[in-house]
Write a protein that binds this DNA or RNA. Structure first.
Lengths: 189, 189
DNA sequence: GGAAGCAACTTTCCACTGGAAAGATATGGT
DNA sequence: ACCATATCTTTCCAGTGGAAAGTTGCTTCC
């Protein structure tokens, strides 16, 4: 009967999205890359994903839950990126910078813990993994201060690059621009 | 006549606040220190300052204008802090870290240009001043890469400290914790 | 010294936001 | 067949930033 035709308000996608969690994270990344976390709107993300703005509640809880998942994903990606460079301190540092510049939304959220639920178990596990990857790359360091210097230098370079504070003469490849700077670490004793 | 008694809706302050610009900036700093720029609400700032939420329009334009003024103030404060250390590279670096940790709201806003009007003349002037102060402190550096390393290390340490990523064993004085790390710069050639 | 004009605020309105609550729909196990 | 649960939507509400118009008080000029 014709009366069995139902009203599909927003789209012709089936009622159950099926992959909302991943799509939501990707849409969030897109939104943050355009306007930063301050301009991030759940309703905007929902429109990008083609669902209602309350659809995320089931998967992530509130907005902070969405960003918690994003941060956790970021720490996992960072751990992978750093680990992939073996034990080479310099290239691990370059990888750190490349990760930050290649995933600015993740990076931005990761280091602003007041945006997410810092005690989430999944997140803590990912942080632990990233921490161990970094520690492994730093295994040749003599003192804790040299470790701090190494972390500070790559983290600072990445942040300055992302904020647009560095001179344009450095080109558009952050990793290559960072390498000679990071290499100075080898002089430190 | 009694009929001359007027209605004073929000407070018994005179109609003209008289010092709203400064009070607004201070209230904004307070609000950002509590919740970060994401949670910043003009209406909250207005309540803290005891005015209506549209009172800032005259002084700052929109929300971005308020943050533009805050960023400009920040660059001025940073220039002062760095200049005060004379030509000492190490202590200038410590001053950079102390500024960031002592004025987290300013620092946070300053390096997120999408929060404010980056082409504002007042802001550009303050940025210029800060840039020259930093360049002066770095005057003894041999190459551009060592300058980048120095800036990255203090900027990175400050950001990591503010995000709570550094181990608590470093104590609660960021400047003193940073000094030995910054001092490693003297080994760089 | 009084009126004109400008500076500094308030009120009101509107479209948008995040979240709570309740309802709708699909899916898989029994 | 049917129920339990997972996944989504609708509806509602208080809070938000900004536009527009109105109010108040200061200052300057004749």
């Amino acid at each position: 009967m014709l009366s069995t035709v139902r009203f599909r308000p927003m789209t012709d996608r089936p009622y159950h999205h099926g992959d909302l969690r991943r799509v939501a994270l990707a849409a969030t990344v897109e939104a943050i890359e355009q306007g930063g976390p301050v301009a991030l709107s759940l309703r905007d993300v929902a429109r990008r994903a083609g669902v209602s703005h309350t659809a995320f509640k089931y998967h992530f809880g509130a907005k902070a839950g969405l960003l918690t998942a994003l941060a956790a994903e970021g720490y996992d990606l960072l751990a992978d990126a750093v680990t992939a460079e073996g034990g080479d301190l310099i290239e691990a540092g370059v990888a750190y910078v490349r990760f930050a510049v290649g995933h600015p939304a993740h990076f931005e959220v990761m280091f602003h813990p007041n945006l997410y639920n810092a005690d989430d178990p999944q997140l803590l596990a990912a942080q632990e993994r990233a921490g161990q990857a970094l520690t492994a790359a730093l295994s040749t360091s003599a003192t804790e201060n040299t470790e701090l210097a190494a972390w500070s230098i790559v983290h600072g370079f990445a942040n300055l690059w992302l904020s647009g504070a560095l001179p344009p003469e450095l080109g558009d490849d952050a990793g290559n621009a960072a390498r000679p700077v990071i290499r100075l670490l080898s002089f430190i004793q």
